[in-house]
Design a protein around this nucleic acid. Structure first.
Length: 576
DNA sequence: GCCGTTTTCGGCCCGACTGTTTTCAGTCG
């Protein structure tokens, strides 16, 4: 059993306990433990072997024992007993919008319903409207909810969500009385994908704006409409939520809607300790005096904390770090000095080397490594070396035109073959200024095989960077099954940098592995993997790094250009 | 079930909206 499977078990327990009507705090405890296990990179077996289960946040004596039983037997007696008491098929019903544990228990105990199909039939036949708290309207809402769940769309990738949000923000900003509008929620936290879109705005007279929003032609269905909050659904099922407060309370609202939920719960607990009740409307001190926050910074300042960047607000220790004034100095897009992985029209890129250089200069880069695919640049066995030679000649010519202000390196992205060797010979690699190695095929090999492949590449004397280490390709492939501890340990031993790839389909390393790598002192590198000049401006890799608490000092291409060159030089001579 | 700047026991976030209600429960974020 791995971390994710354990997390699923504890989520399952939490759902069953909720339906059973168990104390809310107990179910919350299981949810928290599940979340911890899910976001953890270190393998649960190694944690257990060293007796450190109690170091997992939210795991105490009882849950630790359950983890041990699951690891030993693959079973959990407690869960088995629970499933005899509460039909497990009820868990699915919790996914229906507006259906929570109380409703599920009602359907089950008062109408004998245990499955989604049975629930739908009962609602259609009007058999639910007489249950306590139900009526004809809630029956219709339930049927709509079931329909929405049945054709529920996948989470929306962040770049798509950002594009979707733009016209709504523009419309809001054009409305009289609206002083500001902003996307919040997981979009503002730069999560790689989002479930629904949260948009906040400030106005003293929100009613006509809310009215206008719900009447726009894109709106398929209005789910809720109030003074401070409205919720709509688009034709494709995507849900948008609009929140409003007057300008003098906008900071509180933005803080609240940015989330995450877990962060907000922690922050409110903390606020309680220092004497405030915190909500999306403001802060209430113990004497009942209200303190308003027009800016988000005010919320944190009033409870005695420094402002916490949205990317950190996941309840992964950020409030503790803020208390101790130890928040990381997060890397920013403008901190990147170099881009060390990109493609030109020498292989499958769209831009010439010159066009890529010009685009890089426009966004403030000082160093660029041209790393075309070895397998594409290699026209046939005999001519690869010739083509690389010609590319080198072009780069040298460009260098003389550029003068000393911009540094252009000649590299390649080489393929790691199935035996772990590289598809360019060492004599060829030796001629290059930088070598980026990566996996492109055979990604479903068993853990040991594919890990060894990567380890061989790391040990190669000429390899400087491992690009998109897991080969993740969203949304269909989550990445190879690697022994990460072995990869990290080899990368440390051979001083090879691991990439955080900025292509939204890769984002690889992902944030959990990036954080773990950084914690272990590994060197990272945030590259665009551009195949066109416009892609050099991709910010998604930096977003992953920020969500992984990473600072500029941990990122090779955020160092000053001369230090990057120095590292490349030293690194190669040390490795050989 | 977890956890400790108020605690090894007794806490554990807060408000908006809906639909059913004559005052509230359930759900959501």
């Amino acid at each position: 059993m791995n971390n994710a499977e354990l997390a699923d078990v504890f989520d399952r327990i939490a759902s069953l306990l909720e339906i059973k009507g168990e104390m809310a705090f107990k179910t919350l405890a299981y949810r928290r433990a599940a979340e911890s296990l899910r976001s953890m990179v270190e393998d649960i077996h190694s944690l257990r072997a060293s007796g450190r289960l109690d170091e997992i946040p939210g795991v105490g004596k009882a849950i630790a024992q359950k983890i041990e039983e699951l690891l030993d037997t693959g079973q959990l007696r407690y869960l088995n007993r629970l499933e005899e008491e509460v039909p497990p098929s009820l868990i699915e019903l919790l996914n229906i919008p507006d259906v929570g544990p109380k409703k599920v228990a009602l359907f089950w105990q008062r109408a004998g319903i245990t499955t989604l199909d049975a629930l739908e039939t009962a609602a259609r036949e009007g058999r639910l409207r007489d249950l306590p708290g139900m009526g004809p309207k809630s029956e219709i809402r339930l049927l709509e909810g079931i329909k929405a769940y049945r054709c529920s769309i996948r989470r929306v990738p962040l770049p798509v969500a950002r594009t979707l949000a733009r016209p709504w923000l523009k419309w809001l900003e054009s409305q009289p009385g609206v002083t500001q509008a902003q996307a919040a929620g997981s979009l503002r936290r730069w999560k790689p994908d989002i479930g629904d879109l949260d948009i906040v705005f400030a106005s003293d007279h929100p009613a006509p704006v809310m009215q206008g929003l719900t009447q726009k032609k894109e709106v398929h269905r209005v789910l809720a409409q109030g003074e401070y909050k409205s919720s709509i659904e688009l034709e494709d099922g995507l849900r948008l939520q609009f929140w409003c407060q007057p300008p003098e309370r906008f900071g509180s609202l933005l803080q609240f809607v940015t989330g995450s939920k877990a962060h907000n719960v922690r922050l409110r607990e903390f606020a309680q300790k220092v004497g405030f009740s915190l909500s999306e409307r403001g802060l209430l001190d113990r004497s009942g005096v209200e303190h308003l926050c027009a800016a988000e910074e005010d919320v944190y300042e009033k409870v005695g904390l420094p402002w916490i960047p949205p990317e950190l607000r996941e309840d992964r220790g950020e409030i503790q770090a803020a208390m101790q004034r130890r928040l990381p100095n997060l890397i920013r897009f403008e901190d990147l000095v170099a881009d060390l992985h990109l493609h030109t029209n020498w292989s499958d890129g769209e831009g010439s080397i010159e066009e890529m250089v010009s685009a890089a200069q426009q966004i403030g880069r000082r160093l660029l490594a041209v790393t075309d695919h070895s397998f594409l640049i290699k026209v046939d066995e005999g001519s690869s070396f010739d083509k690389l030679e010609r590319q080198r000649a072009e780069i040298e010519k460009l260098r003389s035109q550029l003068g000393g202000d911009f540094i252009l390196l000649h590299g390649a992205e080489v393929d790691i073959l199935s035996d772990g060797s590289l598809d360019l010979a060492d004599e060829v690699l030796q001629q290059l200024d930088i070598v980026v190695a990566s996996l492109h095929f055979g990604l479903n090999q068993p853990r040991q095989v594919i890990t060894n492949r990567l380890l061989n590449a790391i040990r190669n004397p000429y390899v400087d960077i491992i690009a998109h280490p897991s080969g993740r390709s969203l949304p269909d492939f989550e990445g190879a099954d690697l022994d990460w501890e072995a990869v990290f340990s080899a990368a440390r031993e051979y001083n090879v940098a691991l990439e955080i790839n900025s292509n939204p389909a890769h984002l690889d390393l992902d944030e959990a592995h990036a954080r773990r790598a950084a914690e272990q002192g590994l060197l990272l590198c945030i590259n665009s993997d551009s195949h066109a000049p416009r892609q050099l401006g991709r910010e998604y890799g930096v977003a992953v790094a920020r969500r992984a608490w990473i600072e500029p000092r941990q990122v090779l291409n955020a160092w000053p250009a001369d230090q990057i060159l120095e590292w490349l030089k030293n690194h190669r001579s040390r490795k050989r």
